[in-house]
Simulated assay, not measured.
Amino acid sequence: MEEADKYSKEMEVAVRVVHMVSVMCQKVQASLVADRSDQVKSKDDDSPVTVADWSVQATVGWTLSEFFGKNVSIVAEEDVETLSKPESAGLLAAVVKTVNECLAEGPQFGLYPPDKTLGSLEILEAINRCNSTGGRTGRHWVLDPVDGTLGFVRGDQYAVALALIDDGKPVIGVLGCPNYPMKKEWLNYHQNSSQTLSTRSTLSPKREQGCVLYARRRSGQAWMQPLIHGNEKLQWPNSAQQVIVSSIDDPSLATFCEPVEKANTNHTFSTGVAHDVGLRNQPLRVHSMVKYAAIARGDAEVFMKFSRAGYKEKIWDHAAGVVIVEEAGGVVTDAGGRPLDFSRGVYLEGLDRGIIACSGATLHDKIVGAVYASWDSSNL
C-alpha cells in the first residue's frame, strides 16, 4: 500500500477535527479573556488549565474513537482527576456544554455529531480514553489539546497539536493555530529585550485570523488552510496552500525563535549560541508549537530550546510540529544532530541537550557546531 493511501483517512479526520476544535478554542478564549474567574484551574505543576483543554481532549477523543474504534490509542496531556472533583461541578458543566456545542457543528467540518447530547460521564470517559503511554509498536495518536496554555489565557498565541505515531515514527502532524494569521504582515510584535509574537486581531479581518497546518511523512509537502468562520463549510483539501521553509541560510539575516517561558528554558545559553553562530536579529519569543508553524511557513528560520536540568520534553509538545517542518523542507534534531525519538513513551528520552529546528541544513549544521563549542562553559 502506498504511504499516501495508508494514512489518507487518518489525515483527513485529523485535519477536520483539529480545525473544528480550533474554531471552538477561539470562542472559549474570547470569553476567557473577558472573564476567566471560573474557567481556569491549576494543575499539579501550577500551569493553568481551562475549559478549552478538557473540551478539546474530549472532542478529539470522542471523534477518533468513532472513526477508529474504542480501542484507539491516544496519548494526551490532561486527565480527569481535577474535573471529577465535587468542587469542579461548574467547570465540568461548562466543558459538557462546550463539547456538545462543538460536536453539533461537526457537519460544517465534514464530521458527524453524536446521535444524542453527551452527558458528564460520557465526556469524562472521552477525556479518560486518552490515557495511552505510546511505545515502539503500533499506532498512537498524540494530542496536546491546548499547547501554550499561558498564551491562551493571556489572549496570545497557542496551538492545538495532533500527531499520529506509527511504530515509533511520527507520520502525520496537524497544528491548529487559532491566533496565527494567514499572512505574516498581520503579525504583531511586542518590543522589549526580545520580541514576543502576538496577534493583531483588532486590525486583521476575521477571515485572516487563524490557520491549520498539516503534513504527512515522506510526502515532501506541508499545507496550510485558513480557519473557517460563520456558516462557511470546510473545503479540504481544496482551500489549502502549500507552505515551504525560508531560503535564508545567512545567520545574520535569520529570525530565531525560542519559548517565552523561562521556567524550563535556558534563554542565556540560547543567546550565547545565537551570538556564536552569527544570529544578529532579536530572538522572537513565541508561546507553543506556533514556533514550528513559523519555521514551516518561512516566517522564521531557527528554533532552539535548551531545557534546564531535570526537565523532560514530552512527545505531544513536538511530534506534530516536527512532521510539518520536515515536510516543508526543514530539519529538526536534538542538539547533537540526532533525530528525535518518539518511541519511548510520553517523554523524549535520550534527548541530547536540547532541540534545534531550522529551515535548512546549512543553518542547522552551524548551530549544532556552536552548541558543541559552547557546551563545556554552559550552566545547564
Score class of each variant (00 low, 15 high):
residue 270 S to V: 13
residue 270 S to Q: 11
residue 270 S to R: 10
residue 270 S to A: 15
residue 271 T to D: 15
residue 271 T to G: 14
residue 272 G to C: 14
residue 273 V to A: 14
residue 273 V to L: 12
residue 273 V to D: 09
residue 273 V to C: 07
residue 274 A to T: 07
residue 274 A to D: 12
residue 274 A to H: 06
residue 275 H to W: 04
residue 275 H to G: 15
residue 275 H to Y: 00
residue 276 D to E: 13
residue 276 D to A: 15
residue 276 D to W: 11
residue 276 D to V: 05
residue 276 D to I: 03
residue 276 D to F: 13
residue 276 D to H: 15
residue 277 V to R: 01
residue 278 G to V: 10
residue 279 L to D: 00
residue 279 L to I: 03
residue 279 L to M: 10
residue 281 N to M: 13
residue 281 N to H: 15
residue 281 N to T: 10
residue 282 Q to C: 12
residue 282 Q to A: 14
residue 282 Q to I: 08
residue 282 Q to L: 15
residue 283 P to S: 05
residue 284 L to W: 06
residue 284 L to A: 10
residue 284 L to K: 08
residue 285 R to E: 06
residue 285 R to D: 02
residue 285 R to N: 05
residue 286 V to C: 03
residue 286 V to I: 15
residue 287 H to L: 04
residue 288 S to P: 04
residue 288 S to W: 09
residue 288 S to F: 07
residue 288 S to K: 04
residue 289 M to N: 12
residue 289 M to E: 00
residue 289 M to W: 02
residue 289 M to C: 08
residue 289 M to Y: 01
residue 290 V to Y: 09
residue 290 V to T: 01
residue 291 K to E: 11
residue 291 K to N: 11
residue 292 Y to S: 00
residue 292 Y to D: 07
residue 293 A to Y: 01
residue 293 A to D: 04
residue 294 A to H: 03
residue 294 A to F: 06
residue 294 A to I: 05
residue 294 A to K: 01
residue 295 I to S: 06
residue 296 A to E: 12
residue 297 R to V: 04
residue 297 R to E: 10
residue 298 G to R: 05
residue 298 G to E: 05
residue 298 G to W: 09
residue 298 G to A: 06
residue 299 D to N: 12
residue 299 D to P: 04
residue 300 A to C: 01
residue 300 A to V: 08
residue 300 A to I: 09
residue 300 A to K: 06
residue 300 A to Y: 09
residue 301 E to V: 02
residue 301 E to A: 02
residue 301 E to F: 01
residue 301 E to T: 07
residue 301 E to L: 00
residue 302 V to L: 12
residue 302 V to A: 00
residue 303 F to C: 11
residue 303 F to Y: 13
residue 303 F to N: 01
residue 303 F to T: 02
residue 304 M to S: 09
residue 304 M to F: 05
residue 304 M to D: 00
residue 304 M to C: 12
residue 305 K to S: 09
residue 305 K to I: 12
residue 305 K to N: 14
residue 305 K to H: 13
residue 306 F to G: 04
residue 308 R to S: 11
residue 308 R to C: 07
residue 308 R to N: 14
residue 308 R to Y: 00
residue 308 R to F: 01
residue 309 A to F: 12
residue 309 A to Q: 13
residue 309 A to H: 11
residue 309 A to I: 12
residue 310 G to P: 09
residue 312 K to Y: 11
residue 312 K to N: 11
residue 312 K to V: 10
residue 313 E to G: 05
residue 313 E to H: 06
residue 314 K to P: 03
residue 314 K to C: 00
residue 315 I to V: 15
residue 316 W to D: 11
residue 317 D to I: 07
residue 317 D to V: 09
residue 317 D to M: 13
residue 317 D to Q: 14
residue 318 H to W: 15
residue 319 A to I: 04
residue 320 A to N: 02
residue 321 G to F: 07
residue 321 G to C: 04
residue 321 G to Y: 06
residue 323 V to K: 08
residue 323 V to N: 10
residue 323 V to A: 05
residue 324 I to R: 01
residue 325 V to E: 05
residue 325 V to I: 11
residue 325 V to S: 08
residue 325 V to T: 09
residue 326 E to I: 02
residue 326 E to A: 00
residue 326 E to L: 07
